[in-house]
């Protein structure tokens, strides 16, 4: 097994990665963004679809009630 040591002396050094920071962090940012979208979009879509179906059911109920009274 290998030793696990923190490879950077400071947060500053971690951020800069000896000059490779922009490349590494750009890769991290885009990957995280795409993965978040892949999870959040279908979650929201399912919620919206179920909401629409429920609204349609409420509308139908109101229509049938209005039919009886008037």
């Amino acid at each position: 097994m290998t030793d696990l040591n923190w490879q950077f002396e400071s947060w500053q050094a971690f951020w800069q990665m000896a000059g490779h920071g922009p490349y590494v962090w750009a890769a991290v940012a885009i990957t995280a963004l795409v993965m978040a979208v892949l999870v959040l979009v279908p979650l929201r879509r399912r919620k919206q679809l179920l909401n629409e179906i429920r609204k349609e059911q409420l509308r139908a109920r109101r229509r049938s009630q209005a039919g009886y009274s008037g």
Binding site: M17, Y23, V28, T31
Partner: peptide, 11 residues
Amino acid sequence: QGNSYRIIYLH
């Protein structure tokens, strides 16, 4: 490659 190789963990 220095630190740029760390991209391997995503790539």
